[in-house]
Design a protein around this nucleic acid. Structure first.
Lengths: 164, 164
DNA sequence: ACTATTAGTTGTATGCAACAACTGATAGGA
DNA sequence: TCCTATCAGTTGTTGCATACAACTAATAGT
């Protein structure tokens, strides 16, 4: 199993730091204010849901579930909770009456914007003291990282801690 | 609240991408294999717990709780679950018999090592095709981000989506 | 028209978290 | 020395997010 044994020690060291930091971020975000209001009265799940709904183009419940890697039943309940909060509404689809189109309400859109602005300002704080080139490289890598992780999930592998 | 309105549009755009990617990563890691075995039969929480215990120096239950931002009761149960699995044991402390020193068993240590190696190899895969400078920048920013998040939690503010 | 498939909902069970109440150990004064 | 306050950890209870399975309603295919 010691895959990492064969790599350049410097890289290995950096990768260790990187892993640690990433885990720390995830853990903090994941466990922070688990049950209490996280942002503007939304739970983390609701935040992600609202974001996906605002970013997407009137997603269906199934599409939302796929986007968030959730069971459709969970997605259904998530949507309902957002509906109850008045941040989102379900639009019937005349084309196919099984499908619901989930769209943000103006209020939901506003909250989403506010949340994103908050997060954005944090990112800006991180990035602003890098020169343009380094910034580009960095954002590129982070994006690649995200795709790679997403691909890993889609492949069903799931590897928070891989069992290969 | 539109803090970001005043920043350079190019930076703003990049920061948006950056934020999106980061959120995606967190979400993927967070929701992957939520309840099913995540790594070698450990839940994500148990992974974090084991890692903290192995990284730390015979933590007490309270110290573990602080480290993971958990309630002490939750930490207590987390430790018990790891004890049941044989990955960890509680050592009484003669100095102060209220306090338990939590230490990994050899088996727990081994599992922890294996998990870390798996994660490490994933990070290495991400980082290895970057040149040294970009790598340094990336790990630096991710680490800074982690500190920033952690500080946010310690300040009690909680800012998955900050309400300032 | 009958059957299979698809979208979404609801029932149920599980796991992780918090809070509160408790036990036992320690510390600090009167 | 006791009496009280504090501290470490455990246990009881509750609530929430999730998955899985069973269901309903709508559509598609033959």
């Amino acid at each position: 199993m010691p895959i990492a044994v064969s790599v350049d020690p410097a890289l290995r060291l950096e990768a260790t730091d990187f892993t640690d930091a990433l885990l720390e971020i995830v853990r903090v975000i994941q466990f922070r204010d688990r049950d209490r209001a996280c942002c503007y009265g939304l739970s983390p799940s609701q935040c992600y849901g609202l974001k996906a709904i605002c970013d997407g183009d009137s997603l269906s419940v199934n599409e939302l579930a796929a986007r968030l890697y959730l069971e459709k039943s969970t997605a259904s309940r998530l949507v309902n909770s957002l509906v109850d909060l008045g941040f989102v509404f379900k639009e019937p689809n005349p084309e196919d009456r099984r499908i619901l189109r989930i769209r943000p309400s103006p209020r939901g859109e506003a909250i989403h914007q506010a949340i994103m602005d908050d997060l954005l300002s944090e990112s800006v704080r991180m990035l602003e003291h890098l020169d343009g080139k380094a910034r580009k490289a960095l954002t590129g890598v982070v994006r690649e990282l995200a795709s790679s992780y997403a691909a890993g999930v889609e492949a069903g592998g799931g590897s928070c801690c891989v069992v290969r």
